[in-house]
């Protein structure tokens, strides 16, 4: 296989990852690193660096479409970015210390956990709750466009969401992923945001989180232009298409499809890490 064929295959794989990642809000990043390492035999450090810049492309490309549609909550996003960027810097420094086997093993575990989270049934939120004083003080409550006009919602459990985001940031900086599953968990489950709001706000935040650690990776020489080029362009094209068709898509079915992909790649990642082939 020459570089031209390699770039075409990586670009095609990244397109599918970007499409599914944007539509489920889980981000394409979680499948990019295992795709590069287990399928294409790329060193995990190059894979993480290229994945990180692709996550920024996914996030910014999708966010451009989402922001106009009015689903994302910019105040929630900005508040939680304090936690994710802080965590991302910590994760990026840890990536320089840990062995590739350790990073690969953590990656596999995170993938399986993400897949499990994304398929477990959503929490019941039919009973109306009073507004959360902290969320009111921080002006987090908002509304999103529904079929019959704006639908108002309240934000809950801000401290729990913040702590989960700190962990999401660490994983993002360590593994070069957007940590979309954890971000959606924090906003969807803990903070009780409507699904599309948590998905789009999570996508919106990924770029800022990844930019915090991308600087560290670039400085360390982990960002390879030849590898990043097809990955970033493929993911960007996929995410742009995915964001356009999001309002018509059914999230439940998509989550199941994507979860299955994540499980397969996660198991491969674990097997290769633990057998020292990474």
């Amino acid at each position: 296989m020459n570089t031209f064929e390699f770039s075409a295959l990586v670009g095609g794989g990244a397109f599918v990852a970007g499409l599914l990642g944007a539509m489920t809000g889980l981000g394409g990043g979680v499948v990019l690193v295992p795709l590069l390492t287990t399928v294409f035999g790329v060193d995990i450090r190059y894979a993480v660096g290229a994945s990180l810049v692709s996550v920024i492309a996914t996030s910014s490309g999708a966010a451009a479409a989402y922001v106009r549609e009015g689903f994302s909550n910019i105040r929630v996003g900005m508040l939680l970015e304090v936690a994710t960027t802080l965590g991302a810097l910590g994760g990026a420094y840890a990536a320089g210390i840990l062995s590739t086997t350790a990073i690969g093993t953590v990656f596999g575990i995170v993938m399986l956990y993400s897949a499990w989270l994304s398929t477990s049934p959503p929490a019941d939120r039919l009973e109306p709750r009073p507004p959360d004083p902290l969320a009111v003080r921080l002006r987090l409550d908002s509304s999103f466009p529904g079929p019959d006009g704006p639908v108002a919602y309240h934000v809950r459990n801000v401290p729990a969401g913040f702590l989960l985001m700190l962990l999401a940031g660490v994983l993002s900086g360590l593994l070069g992923v957007g940590s979309g599953a954890l971000k959606v968990l924090a906003m969807d489950r803990a903070m009780m945001l409507p699904f599309k709001v948590s998905t789009t706000t999570s996508n919106f935040m990924m770029g800022v989180t990844a930019a915090a650690s991308a600087g560290v990776y670039l400085h360390r020489g982990y960002i390879n232009p030849g590898l990043s080029m097809p990955l970033m362009l493929g993911v960007l094209a996929g995410a742009t298409v995915g964001a356009r068709i999001l309002p018509a898509a059914r999230p439940r079915h998509l989550r199941l499809v994507f979860a299955a992909v994540i499980v397969v790649l996660g198991v491969q990642m674990l097997v290769q890490s633990l057998s020292g082939r990474l």
């Binding site: 360390r220 390879n224 080029m229």
Partner: peptide, 30 residues
């Protein structure tokens, strides 16, 4: 990225990709 990619592939497209072993990028690309 696309413009740079065309130049990159035009010069190294037929060579084998070398991403399996980690060398780190040269200082000028950091």
């Amino acid at each position: 990225v696309a413009a740079g990619g065309i130049v990159y592939l035009a010069s190294t497209g037929l060579a084998s990709p070398d991403f399996a072993a980690f060398h780190g990028e040269p200082d000028r690309l950091r």
